[in-house]
């Protein structure tokens, strides 16, 4: 009888210990699930904004390319127009020289001088337009600054993801392939290994290009 009672009491204690252990483990599991759910909820917004920001940044970059192209064409067109005026001015001066030397009607000298004055005035306006057109550089710089901020923000959010999910453990699997990585590598190399014409000529010389 006594033995049975001891066994029974001992069994209850074991059962209680097992129950407590299971209860503790379930508690830990519940905490972990809650923490993970909270983390995922926290990451939801940064991930969504990152997904929004990257296409926007892409559009900004395409816009920058268009702006620089347009600005450059504008400056070149104005420079071409000034060049054409310069040719006309040169011709008018030749005419004046000939008229002064007695070749032709001397009264036309005034006409030629007026024509030159007009052309110079046009060019003054064009020179100012060139300065104004070059302001695209300022617009480009402003947008580039904003893009840098967006990229830094995206980088910050990605780093947060890396930390939260412990992705750094998988660093060995970093993707060093693909067009993006190759372009980045080329950009990096061009900072230090781009050669000047003189050095290029030396290489060409080694291959018989004199």
């Amino acid at each position: 009888m006594l033995t049975e009672k001891v066994i029974e009491e001992g069994g209850d204690e074991v059962d209680q210990a097992i129950d407590r252990e299971i209860y503790d483990e379930l508690g830990e599991l519940a905490k972990y699930v809650e923490a993970t759910t909270r983390t995922l909820r926290e990451m939801e917004t940064p991930l969504a904004t990152t997904a929004d920001q990257l296409p926007q940044a892409n559009d900004f970059l395409a816009e920058l390319s268009r702006m620089t192209e347009e600005g450059t064409h504008k400056v070149m067109s104005l420079a071409d127009a000034i060049g054409e005026n310069r040719t006309q001015i040169k011709k008018a001066l030749d005419d004046i020289q000939a008229l002064v030397a007695g070749k032709g009607d001397p009264s036309k000298v005034q006409d030629r001088i007026r024509a030159i004055a007009n052309l110079v005035e046009q060019d003054e306006s064009r020179l100012l337009d060139i300065s104004v057109a070059l302001s695209f550089q300022d617009l480009v710089a402003q947008r580039v600054k904003k893009l840098v901020v967006i990229l830094e923000d995206v980088q910050h959010k990605l780093l947060k993801l890396v930390v939260v999910f412990g992705l750094q453990q998988g660093k060995a699997h970093t993707d060093h392939e693909g067009q993006g990585y190759e372009m980045l590598k080329q950009l990096e190399q061009s900072k230090t290994t781009a050669l000047e014409q003189g050095l290029v000529d030396n290489i060409l010389g080694e291959f018989g290009f004199n």
Partner: peptide, 13 residues
């Protein structure tokens, strides 16, 4: 071109 790295030049040659 702006591609002025030695390997580019040699490739072109």
């Amino acid at each position: 071109t702006a591609e002025a790295q030695k390997e580019n030049i040699i490739e072109a040659i």
